[in-house]
Amino acid sequence: MKLKVFRYDGDESHYDEFEVPHKPGQTVLDALFYIQENLDDSLSFRYSCRGAVCGSCAMLINKVPRLACRTQVKTLVEGEDKVKIKHCPALDKGDEIEDGAVLVEPLPHLPVEKDLIVDQDKFFEYYREMEPMLKTKSEVPGEEYEMDPEDVSELEDYTNCILCAACFGACPVDGENVNYRGPAALAKLYRFHIDPRDKSERLSLADHEDGWWACEFHTNCQKVCPKNVPPNIAIGKARSKLEKEDG
């Protein structure tokens, strides 16, 4: 099985091809480890949990941003890969997918540091800008807030986000407008907006042309999300609320 991997050392970039023996259940992350341990120990990529919960290993695999640890090599090689996303200019860059091979590249829309590692500072800067911490008014020490299980269920759609930045790499708007805060940051803001315990005014934080109003509803964010978070729905709801308030 052939893996074609993007390489960058800070000066120049190129692609390396590696022949990796196939094993049942093998993920793209497993294959990258095989390369690092047996073929070329200079290959760099982020990893931690290998179980799709920590968000370290989002990268562009066969032109789809996704977690390397959750992507089975077999489905890629056999063409059963089902994620269909809308076109994004960043995907025209770089090499093309070859039949029977796996193409591994760094996540688009963020500067590459080395090989498959990107600089996520901007992504987290937008996250912090949303002031993502609960702001309550009157907590009673020693007593929990009571919450309706239905409210919890809606909140879970958004708290499930693991901040892997796959959505940021898949969003065509982020590809064109470097100031767009992106799906993850907006979904996080919406999560605090709908938290019944939170008493601060939230939606205005992104009520500008690079916030809620920049989204063009390509819905790539939801399609590539490993946790099925729907930022597009959050953005739509936030917009209608703001429109109602204005009108």
Partner: peptide, 19 residues
Amino acid sequence: VIELEHMGTVFSRFENGKI
């Protein structure tokens, strides 16, 4: 646990709203 709840953790709830 209550401190974590006040900090913002969305715990699962019983029908009566408690953790």
